[in-house]
Design a protein around this nucleic acid. Structure first.
Length: 858
RNA sequence: GGGCGCUUAGCUCAGCUGGAAGAGCGCCUCCCUUACAAGGAGGAAGCCGGGGGUUCGAGUCCCUCAGCGCCCACCA
């Protein structure tokens, strides 16, 4: 392809991404042994959300690694996944189509959503709802793919998977059934963190603390023979009806006399014991607390360890139950009291209870406002409650020190980039306080693949689930029927009932290596790609995605799912706050890519060090754009000098000039350094070193050899320059290729066959061989003198094209000798008529005196 | 409360195993030069957060304090 007169970045993205697709440039071969494959466990982006520059940032990092490994000769397995599973998709579908899922409805094969979303959501069956989810995510996925192609991700698009597709469902259900068979998955009826709006259980990993206003309410419990009673402080007075005991620290002398006695709760006057437990903090409040079922996780611990009864007053909708527990409704007075509260939300109930306490005189003083941390579901809007429900769990070491130790050991086996991110994994694993709750009371997701037999009264037998054979997977138990039953028996006494729940999205995402690599679906692919080489991801999901993936691989294969984890930082907006949609400061990535060009945006992304939060910086994109243009122009210039026959291998024997050899010696060191950086997953360092070298190469070397390289054919100096230019250009373009794939491909195409992204990574040895053993310092001295001449011209406010009458360099004999070897090039580049070298043994650095020709003589 | 990271030019950040303070942006001055004016050349500008140590020598290693950010924690 010819070198254009005026190289441009415009249109490179479309032109080359089309070409790469047509040529299968990034196709995974799949025919090579595991040792020659580099496989990447790409984070599947949530398609119901929108891509923002944060995605562009971190996916570019991974892409540079993929491209480097491909050029190193590895068969790179780099699929894309779409996370279309879970609540975000459900919510989007509800809003987009104006529907809501009613799992009691039967599937309507001919269902079509209303043209325009109605005001009142239409109820649809689960299969119909899921169908709408799939329809919507397919649209989203097309948009995402377009963006990724525009950005230049070197993904093999034929390997794409989704987290709710058939393959993912099969893998997810198969893994679950095997985990269940090994006793690593179990169900239990237990207090569970519960989101009252989504009406689903929530796992520890999905919690976040939020600072909320609240108030300490001092409340008096009555005690026989003691008019003072016992005063406790609580932020949740509405839970007084659910109080089952008071608790204080065993060493607390104030309350030791009370241990073993009982007190009566305010309002309802129920008798509850006073107990001792180490978790009670004498410093907090009055040092004695009420235990309710359940106000927080500490209540759960006390309830379990002190073997207390359950007195549940909250329903799944977050309102006080209509009917009281038996002991709260055993008198007219108590029933009347209950009626005051029944049906109220937690917030309303609190207000009413405080009023009642004030009336009864059991509220001591005024409530004291405080701000305290309250647990929320990370996607939720109201504080979590704790309700007792039947749920599925997978063992993750939260209740088993042996398993926990094994998983910590896995974390130490894994190579983290940067290394210090391991600490987050360890603190998470060490802080686990229960197994992994994987069931969700939602609709769009992978269903639990089982049913329960119903007894003669229609009550399910949870201890003896009906399991499908693996060949039947994936199944939807709400429409599929267990072996030996008929559809007519669904929900009938003596028949069966489906498990109504779906799995948590992480229960499927945690199998991304298995899904992507074709576990139990494609034995050859699995053997050549698993365990994978690299898991790239952001730091905030170490506790979810990274940890759960390690758990599943450990349980299923007794090994790590990958060897390396590279942890990217966040993109901050220019005010240093985390960019997020809710803050309204998200930048649309496509507009940015089109404005600056993909290579320029990638340049900005790559300049963010591994693991480091990085500000969105358009200035860096401008710099990247300039670099991209410079690469085109420098290539154009070099090719103009060396001619079109430069594509072939360079004969190192032709490189005879000291300056050229010195340049190559430096270049060989650069190759070593950049290669080492990439081996350590430090793309940022790789770019920074390459870029620094390149600008100096343009400013100094190209200027120094310009005249010599233009000499006639047959001139040994010209041949040396041309050979060096060809060698250096080939190396530099390839060092840049992982970072700025479009512009390097364009420049490469002007003189080389095939894609640069399929060319081999530069090796230092041949470059060093061509350099012979020349002292690289002569290049530095030459560049320094040239710089001094430029400075003199600039300070005289003269053009750089101005000729110099005389350039005098004063320096030690040693450095003058270095300079003497390259002085012809220096003279020509400086446009000097004469260069004098003056020896001064005491000189610390070259002193350059420049005598320019008079202005009118130019 | 525990842990991790950060603190270098006005701004954003490099400085790997200790050896004479760096880049880009911004600012100032200049230059159409046969690769590049959506360019290029040059310049000003830093007690490398504070305080101790180790060393011939510390931005770099150790201790300590402070500020910022994040992760984790059974936060009545």
């Amino acid at each position: 392809m010819a070198v254009p007169k005026k190289p441009s970045l415009d249109g490179l993205e479309d032109a080359w991404s089309t070409r790469w697709e047509a040529d299968g440039t990034y196709a995974f071969g799949g025919d090579r042994p595991r040792s020659e494959v580099f496989s990447i466990d790409t984070p599947p982006p949530t398609v119901s959300g929108s891509l923002h520059v944060g995605h562009v940032f971190s996916y570019t990092h991974t892409d540079t690694i993929a491209r480097y490994q491909r050029m190193r000769g590895r068969d790179v397995f780099y699929p894309m996944g779409w996370d279309d599973n879970g609540l975000p998709t459900e919510r989007r579908v509800q809003n987009h189509f104006g529907v809501r899922c009613d799992p009691t409805l039967q599937h309507d094969p001919g269902f079509e959503p209303p043209e325009k979303p109605p005001k009142r959501a239409v109820a649809v069956s689960r299969p119909d709802f899921v169908e709408l989810c799939e329809r919507l995510v397919a649209e989203d996925e097309r948009k995402f793919e377009e963006l990724w192609r525009h950005l230049g991700l070197s993904v093999d698009w034929s390997m794409t998977y989704t987290t709710v597709g058939v393959r993912a469902q099969r893998a997810s259900q198969r893994a679950f059934l095997r985990t269940f068979a090994r006793g690593e998955a179990y169900q239990a009826e237990a207090p569970t963190l519960w989101d009252v709006d989504f009406r689903t259980a929530v796992a520890q990993a999905e919690l976040e603390d939020r600072e909320m206003p609240g108030a300490y309410h001092a409340v008096r419990f009555a005690r026989d023979g003691d008019p003072e009673g016992v005063v406790i402080e609580t932020t949740r007075p509405e839970l007084i009806p659910a109080c089952v005991a008071l608790v204080a620290h065993p060493d607390d002398e104030r309350y030791q006399p009370l241990f073993g006695t009982s007190v009566r709760t305010p309002l309802f006057g129920l008798e509850v014991p006073v107990l001792a437990h180490e978790l009670a903090d004498p410093e907090k409040g009055s040092g004695i607390a009420m235990i309710c079922t359940f106000g927080d996780l500490t209540d759960v611990t006390w309830w379990r360890e002190l073997d207390l009864p359950t007195r549940s007053i909250l329903g799944w909708d977050g309102r006080i139950e209509a009917e009281p527990p038996p002991e709260l409704g055993d008198s007219d007075a108590r029933r009347a009291l209950w009626a005051e509260l029944a049906g109220l939300t937690v917030k309303q109930a609190q207000q009413r209870v405080v009023e009642l306490l004030a009336e009864s005189g059991e509220l001591v003083g005024e409530p004291k406002p405080v701000t305290h941390a309250v647990k929320f579901y990370e996607k939720g809007e109201r504080p979590l409650e704790i309700v007792t429900t039947r749920q599925w769990y997978i063992r993750n070491g939260g209740r088993d020190s042996g398993l926990r130790a094994a998983l910590l050991e896995r974390g130490r086996e894994l190579q983290w980039h940067p290394e210090y991110m391991r600490a987050r994994y360890e603190s998470w694993v060490e802080g686990l306080h229960g197994d992994w709750l994987i069931s969700r009371q939602r609709f769009f997701g992978v269903p639990f693949p089982l049913w329960y037999p119903l007894d003669a009264d229609g009550i399910p037998d949870h201890d003896h689930p009906l399991l499908p054979s693996e060949e039947r997977l994936p199944i939807d138990p709400s429409s599929d029927v267990p072996d030996g039953y008929t559809e007519a028996q669904r929900g009938q006494p003596g028949g069966f009932a489906a498990d109504p729940d779906i799995m948590d999205t992480w229960a499927t995402s945690s199998l991304s290596p298995q899904i992507a690599c074709g576990w139990e679906e494609d034995a050859a692919k699995f053997a050549s790609t698993y365990p994978m080489d690299l898991r790239p991801q952001a730091h905030e999901i170490i506790r979810t995605w990274l940890f759960s993936t390690i758990v599943r691989a450990h349980l299923e294969f007794d090994g790590l799912p990958w060897r390396h984890a590279s942890i990217s930082g966040w993109v901050l907006d220019p005010d240093r706050k985390k960019m997020s949609k809710s803050k309204g400061n998200v930048v649309t990535p496509m507009a940015t890519l089109e404005q600056y060009g993909s290579d320029a945006v990638r340049y900005w992304a790559v300049s963010g060090r591994p693991g480091t939060d990085t500000a969105f910086d358009e200035g860096q994109m401008k710099v990247g754009r300039r670099l991209a243009i410079k690469i085109l122009n420098a290539t154009k210039f070099a090719l103009g000098v060396i001619g079109s026959d430069a594509a072939g291998p360079v004969d190192p024997a032709v490189v005879t000039v000291a300056l050229d050899r010195a340049l190559l010696a430096d270049l060989a060191s650069l190759v070593d350094e950049v290669t080492a950086a990439f081996e350590g997953f430090d793309y940022a360092r790789a770019l920074e070193r390459t870029e620094r070298f390149f600008w100096a190469f343009c400013d100094d070397y190209l200027e120094l050899v310009k005249q010599r390289a233009y000499r006639d054919d047959g001139d040994a100096g010209a041949a040396s320059a041309r050979a060096t230019l060809a060698l250096a250009l080939g190396v530099l373009l390839r060092l840049f290729a992982p970072h700025v794939p479009f512009v390097t491909e364009e420049a490469w195409s002007w003189w080389q066959e095939g894609s640069i992204h399929r060319s081999s990574w530069p090796e230092a040895a041949p470059v060093r061989a061509a350099a012979s053993d020349v002292d690289a310092a002569s290049y530095a001295v030459a560049a320094a003198v040239l710089g001094s001449v430029r400075k003199a011209k600039t300070e005289s406010q003269r053009s750089l094209g101005t000729e110099a009458e005389l350039v005098t360099v004063t320096d030690t004999a040693e450095r003058l000798a270095l300079l003497r070897a390259v002085v012809d090039d220096v003279r020509e580049a400086a446009r000097a008529r004469r260069v004098d070298l003056v020896e001064d043994a005491a000189s610390n650095e070259p002193v350059v005196a420049v005598e320019l020709v008079p202005p009118d003589d130019a």
